[in-house]
Amino acid sequence: MKQKSFPLRRFFTPTGVCLFLLILHYTLFLVLPMLIAFVGSFHDWNPLRGTFSFTGFSHYQRLLTNELFWSSLRNTLVFSFVVIAARMILGLVIASALFSGLTRAKNFFRAAFYMPVVTPLVAVSFVWLWLYNPQFGLVNQILGTQINWLYSKSLALPAVMTMTAWKDYGYAVVLYLAGLYTLPKDCYEAARMDGASSWVQFKKITLPLLKPMSLFIFITSLIAYLQAYIQILVMTNGGPGTSTYLSSYLIYDEAFMKYKFGYASAISFAMFLLIGLLTLLSFRVNQRGENA
């Protein structure tokens, strides 16, 4: 019996070629580096010196007992959840204000609020570095204080979080605004006929209907903030001491300052698992809410 050969013609279609290139791209630039990093996490690995010797689980063991890893993780979680909350609340409030009939020049405001999002983070961080200057920074001039914001153990991280929330809330504004435009008007008409106040309409109709959008913003923000390090690199270098170290900054520090790529890979994988778990958890919570 003649065996059927693979129809090559089917592969050489625009779809086939595009698909192949996409798979190739992701394999080469995503899957393969991840695999190498995973294998590297079990090795004493310094690519600059060409060392790659097996160390078993020692990096993972060190990670579990390393004080700096845990304090960085704690900082990362605080940083992520506070900035996400600020981003979502601000975004929702401003989007609602823009959506309401009270605001004029909507396009102007929409563009203005989105502008910081498209500005490079490095540039924004440098500007805020000056804003926080204890002698001639605008923040102190407005408040009439002489606080050394970025060198205070208790204020440095909140100062970086404030900058990040300011830079990123525009993203939530635009997405919430898009969500608000898609909401069915008849629900609001029915609620108004039943005598529901604006607040009740917002609480009982707007918020529940915006839930998928909120989940999307939450998850994309979580993934982004758990990997945040540029603002730390520019504004505090993890200091004072190590009090503003975030997990991704720790990875950068271990890999590119100390050239301990094996240990940095182990931290990366711990973070990968954490991000995966938190994302899964978010979906589960959302699903449970929908089922209820």
Binding site: S152, K153, G239, P240, G241, T242, S243, M257, K258
Partner: peptide, 17 residues
């Protein structure tokens, strides 16, 4: 270079923290 970087961190821990 790690020695100098860490010495700076140690000093910051003493002075600021």
């Amino acid at each position: 270079g790690v020695i100098e970087t860490q010495m700076q961190q140690i000093f910051e821990d003493v002075v600021f923290n």
